[in-house]
Nucleic acid binder design. Structure first.
Lengths: 155, 155
DNA sequence: TATTGTTATACTCTATAACTATA
DNA sequence: TATAGTTATAGAGTATAACAATA
């Protein structure tokens, strides 16, 4: 409680704390759509590059291919993604969103906007712009890929 | 890669991304001291309030008492914390840092300062102050307790 | 023989519940 | 009977390795 008097809180700690908070809130919101944050990440990657293979997904996510199989199974069963055998190389699955999957991603987009609005509601438009710029500065300096959430994997 | 062209990146996502990055980097740093971030959190709480019980720790952390036992065991074996039977109520363990534990916490403090410096090295002192102020504004508005990292538990 | 995706297995993390020793 | 801490057990999550189909 009075811990803050003793120890100066730095940018690094605040980022970790607020980041976990933001991620937790987002998880709670998309849970109402029946999705986990990992599900959302997977759906976004498929929406952005339809037809990609599970191997390429595994490589980009930094996880093992068997993990992608396990993550994809429920989304497939729920009718949000479709695995199509590639005509050219029948070992491949070409991944696509279904119509339902596309609709769900619209819900996710609305959810993300509400999340953003809630998190920054205490800031003036000016302050929000400043914060965004400073965060982008640090993210860029730290070599983070835009739009790719690292989870907690390899640094 | 060119994802950023399509989808505007917001404050919420950047916070989650940078927060995970900062947490991961910190984890890598303290791993060199043989500690996990959870270990550090536990040591900090004991350092701040010596003599506290495992129950109070469990309550503050939002975890179950048996979890505290499991987290404490390696720190005890490593000689960083000491469990002293309370004289007043012999069911209790009063938790204290050992001399070695106190020394390790000095290392942790140096590590945290290096971490902070690295993460904000691209900012001018002015920018760093602005970022700190804006993050504190949001953290306060979101009801976050100073100095307490929520992990990914209950929102 | 190499590669895509799947299945089987093992390991880690965490929670629930049963247990002990005190009170 | 209730409480502090421990131990035992079970469930998620994730990685490694063996496997089947295709190239």
């Amino acid at each position: 409680m009075s811990e803050s008097r003793n120890r100066p809180i730095g940018v690094a700690f605040l980022l970790a704390q607020l980041g976990a908070h933001a991620a937790g809130r987002f998880a709670a919101r998309v849970a109402e759509l029946g999705l986990s944050p990992a599900d959302v990440g997977l759906l976004r990657m498929i929406a952005f590059q339809p037809g990609r293979s599970q191997q390429s997904l595994a490589a980009d996510l930094g996880v093992v291919p068997s993990r992608v199989t396990a993550m994809l199974d429920p989304l497939d069963r729920a009718g949000l993604v479709e695995r199509r055998r590639s005509a050219g190389d029948r070992r491949n699955h070409e991944l696509h969103l279904t119509a339902e999957g596309t609709r769900v991603m619209e819900d996710v987009k609305r959810t993300a906007m509400a999340h953003e609005a809630d998190l920054t509601s205490c800031l003036s438009p000016d302050q929000r712009g400043q914060l965004l710029a400073l965060l982008e500065l640090v993210a860029d300096d730290q070599g983070l890929t835009p739009g790719v959430h690292p989870g907690y994997r390899r640094s």
